[in-house]
Amino acid sequence: MAWYIVRRFLQLIPVFLGATLLVYFLVFSLPGDATAAICGERGCTPAVVAGLREQYNLDQPFWIQYLLYLKGVLTFDLGTNFSGRPIATIIAEVFPTTAKLAVMALVIEAVFGIVFGLVAGLRKGKIFDSSVLVLSLIVIAVPIFVLGFLMQFLIGVKLQWTNPTVSGDATFAELLLPAVVLGLVSFAYVLRLTRTSIIENVNADYVRTATAKGLSRRRVVVVHVLRNSLIPVVTFLGADLGALMGGAIVTEGIFNVNGVGNTLYRAVLNGDGPMVVSIVTFLILIFCLANLLVDLLYAWLDPRIRYA
């Protein structure tokens, strides 16, 4: 098992390097002056531009630039953004909010998705099943920003159950509505995935055995059917954690959450290359680690999978 973890971890490295290289290349090497955003409409004098290019290693050949950047990432020295603030400090400041938001969304979508999917799968073809299926299709189809505005307007503005926007403190209660919006689309996917998986497994031999040896229905469903049906769901949830971090761009924008997504959006609008690259690198890292975690969860969920 330990060897398996090490091997999976080593496999992550090329993916991580490739993805960061791709982003770095796109941001700094496509035609157009990467420092133009600092200077604004009027432009800087050539001396200032040269100084800036030197400060951000842009005067070096591309490979040296990238290696210097990697060195920075590995030593947790991400440099400064275009307004001169250390990037690591900014990320440390906004990350907890986004992490809270993403984990809340993940919990909401996992709990509700699995419960609804389980019930729908066990009652395949009944009214509950078909209505939940139709509902999930609608939730998938409505884009997250439409959904976000709708809920912000109905719950925040009309009913006033909660603040329509989130303050700087980002308390649990304030983040609940954005988390629901963020998790809603994936909730529909989790539900459909669980349902399909349950329907597949409910007729499996080991389920019949479990029933035949006299286990209670509850135990059969929870321990035998559900546990074995969760594997595709867990895969999805792991991949989704990364997507939630990225998807937070829209949700954080609507609800004015001061998180990673909002910071990335501002950096993109300002053309702040170093900031964009650092945040995306950070998100890629989280995405890769989440996928690693999923692989390790498999072994625990499915006793048939054993890693040599």
């Binding site: 090329p14 993916v15 991580f16 490739g18 993805a19 791709l22 982003v23 796109l26 941001v27 496509l30 035609p31 157009g32 002056d33 133009a36 990364g242 997507a243 990225g246 998807g247 761009i249 829209v250 990335l264 959006y265 993109v268 609008l269 053309g271 964009v276 995306v280 998100l283 890629i284 995405f287 890769c288």
Partner: peptide, 20 residues
């Protein structure tokens, strides 16, 4: 795999704002 690590919207947001 490398492209998969970069979600569609995230990648598009980064690229769409480039000068080119």
């Amino acid at each position: 795999d490398i492209f998969f690590a970069l979600p569609l919207i995230l990648g598009a947001i980064v690229v769409v704002q480039l000068p080119v």
